[in-house]
């Protein structure tokens, strides 16, 4: 930068791209980069498990993925006769969520409009406003996992 030249600041809005889906009719959101895809739900094989909320496997062809019971975690019931499968990119590998039959929507929100949750929750990145409703943005990367604290 030449001496005397003033640094120009460009007002740039940081945005988050979100996928909005629902469980039990309640809208929930996740960052699109943390979603590996949406598929029709396939019958899951229950697995006896003591791992909280991880209690089944689901098969898609030759691929087998573990199931995170987000509906049970939130004490909700998945709605619709043809529920969908949302593939979450958790940090320990892909895991699937059973979600309502309503097709998820893609939206973009300005990062500076996000608010922190009323109570700290490592599963929630923040809250956004969609159609006048406050919608939690879930951290699929860390869903159900213990928080990692920086050393």
């Amino acid at each position: 930068m030449l001496r005397g030249q003033r640094k120009q600041t460009v007002a740039r809005t940081v945005t988050w791209s979100l996928i909005v889906f629902s469980i039990g009719g309640r809208p929930l959101a996740a960052r699109t980069e943390e979603v590996g895809g949406i598929r029709p739900w396939a019958d899951a094989m229950p697995v006896p498990s003591r791992t909280p909320s991880v209690n089944a496997l689901v098969r898609y062809g030759e691929e087998v993925l573990p199931v995170f019971d987000l509906a049970g975690f939130l004490k909700l019931q998945v709605r619709g006769n043809a529920p969908l499968c949302l593939i979450a990119k958790r940090r320990d590998g892909r895991i699937v969520l059973r979600i309502d039959a309503d097709m998820p929507q893609l939206i973009t929100v300005a990062a500076d409009t996000l608010r922190p949750p009323a109570e700290p929750d490592s599963n929630i990145l923040g809250l956004c406003q969609i159609d006048g409703k406050e919608v939690p943005i879930y951290s699929l990367t860390n869903l159900g996992l213990p928080t990692i604290h920086a050393a």
Binding site: S49, R50, V54, L57, V64, L65, P66
Partner: peptide
């Protein structure tokens, strides 16, 4: 025969 995915961390 595959082990359970690493997401299963308990007695299972």
């Amino acid at each position: 025969i595959h082990p359970l995915p690493p997401h299963f961390t308990g007695e299972e």
